[in-house]
Amino acid sequence: MKSVKKKLYITILTLLILFIISLFYGGISSHTISPINISDINKVILYDLRLPKILTAILVGTCLALSGHLFQLLLSNPLAEPGLLGVSSLASLFVMLGAAIFNYINIRYDVFFLVLSSSLGALLAVTIIFQLAKRLGQYSSASLILSGISLTTLISAISSWLIYYSDNTQLRTFNLWLLGSFEHVTFFQLMFIGLITVTVTILCMCKSKELNMLYMGDQNATLYGLKVNKLRKYMLILASTLAACAVALGGVIAFIGLLAPHATRIIFGHDNRLVLPMLVINGASFMVFIEWISRTSMSLQLPLGLVTATLGGPFFLFILFKHFKNQGL
């Protein structure tokens, strides 16, 4: 128990340190601000430019880490992740289509509609994946991932057609959703989506004991008195909402949903009562770190999706080798 407490302190401390570094330290190509004697211009940079982005990163990281873990648990598949399953891409496609429609009928694309279209996309993706996986082979590990891949391919085809037929300004917007960026996030959006995230996170944590049973497999969980299908449907809706929130804020950011849950489970074990709160912290830490890198490593801001994919690709291989070496799927 002692060591768990120690790990917990270190985890929280990491987030705090990253938060401070990200806020003040400019790295190679950006402006470093000393925390003592902040000038007025620097105050603007800190509060209006950096802080919103860092807060967005915390929210997005939380959403992605939690939804990644939940998808892995609910689909009994350590490779599941909103990015890989196509949940994020369909959500972002819906956001883009929503933007196009609202633009056409000339209504302001409010944050409410943004989250709504994103959630609809995410839920539709989960439904499609389940229907495909059911037909492909009894929701098996391979069939779920394959349905995810086919869905992602389909959506990327549609996105590519959209890009092909779009002009310069539209192209910039599309890129934003497809590669991930926190540039456009307003304070009101942050508050609104933050409220949803907090609510959903609390709802998830209320179910941690039931979620633990899912580790034993569906049938065993049933034997221990769990209504598995009901819980799965409920939790999938929550997980999709979280993935949708992340997309609504920052577009498609892959691999955080894979990286954070695996790291957290390696450090803290599997008990969801501990894992879920730690995921919030670790997800936030990862995302703050990546946002900081994307902002400071090059003279131009890097797309977040580019950074996560660069770090996530090798990590995905690591997971593959750890879980599936000599096993087939």
Partner: peptide
């Protein structure tokens, strides 16, 4: 049960 599933390294 006859067969046990283990997807996670508990």
């Amino acid at each position: 049960m006859q067969k046990q599933v283990a997807h996670f390294a508990l």
